[in-house]
Design a protein around this nucleic acid. Structure first.
Lengths: 112, 112
DNA sequence: ATAAATACCTAGGAGTCAAAGGTATTTTAT
DNA sequence: ATAAAATACCTTTGACTCCTAGGTATTTAT
C-alpha cells in the first residue's frame, strides 16, 4: 500500500498484539517497534496512536503506569484481563478477515 | 470481522479483481457474487458500491455499457486499459500489505 | 394481491486514521 | 557552546472510506 495508510481496524489489533508479546510498552516505543518490525512499511503516526491508547484505556482494555526516566515522562501500557480476552478476539477476527480477503484476491477465472 | 465492515481500501481492489476475472459485471451482480464467493462473510453494500463504481468510471479505470434486460436496466462495467494496469497494482499492493500485516500478527515473543 | 428479488440511485453520517501543529527534555553533531 | 535531532507526550482538524437509510421501478414468486 506504499504510504496509503493502515487498514481500517488494523491499528488497534497491532497495538494489542505488541502489548501481548512485550508485556508493557510506552507510546513512542510502539511507533518505533512497528517501524522496525515492518522495515518501514507500516508507520503508526502519533496522531493516530495516542488517541487510540486513551480510548483503549477508557474502555478498560489497557491500564497505565507512569514512570519518569531521565526526567522524561513515560506512560507504560499493558493489557488488563479484559484486554487479554479482547486481544485474542481481535487477532482471530483479523486472521479470519485476511483469509477471506485472500480467497477473493486469489479467485481464478471461471474456466469454461 | 463479523459484520464490522470492509477494511479500508479493500472494496476497490475486490471490485477490480472481480472485473478482471469476469470480464464484465453489473453492480447488483457484484454484490451477489461477493456474498456467494465468501459465504456471506463479506457484504458489499449498494451504498458503498455504486458511488465507487461511478468514481472509478470518472477516473477512467472502468467503462460502462448500458443494456436493457427484461425491461430492467443493467450497467455493465469493465476494465479499461488503464484499469487493467491499476488492477495489477492494487492487487500486489494488497498482497504486500497482507503479508506485512501477517508478519506483525505472527510476531513471536522475544525469547530471553 | 403482496412480498421478495432484481436493478439502479443519493444524502447524510459514523468511524478510522493522518496531517499538522504544540510542549519539553536529552542527546548528538557541529 | 550551539543547533539539530531524537525522545516523549499531546490535541485539533480534516480527509477518506464505507454504511445506513432512504428512494424509484420492474419482474417473479407466493
Amino acid at each position: 500500500m506504499a504510504d496509503s495508510g493502515l487498514f481500517k481496524g488494523s491499528l488497534i489489533t497491532i497495538i494489542l498484539k505488541l502489548l501481548k508479546e512485550d508485556g508493557r510498552m510506552y507510546g513512542y516505543e510502539i511507533t518505533q517497534k512497528v517501524k522496525a518490525a515492518t522495515e518501514g512499511k507500516f508507520t503508526i503516526t502519533e496522531g493516530a496512536l495516542y488517541p487510540t491508547l486513551h480510548k483503549l484505556e477508557a474502555q478498560g482494555i489497557l491500564e497505565v503506569e507512569v514512570e519518569k526516566v531521565d526526567n522524561r515522562l513515560r506512560k507504560y501500557y499493558k493489557l488488563t484481563e479484559k484486554g487479554t480476552t479482547e486481544t485474542a478476539t481481535k487477532i482471530s477476527e483479523l486472521e479470519e478477515y485476511i483469509k477471506t480477503l485472500q480467497e477473493i484476491i486469489q479467485l481464478k477465472p471461471n474456466l469454461g
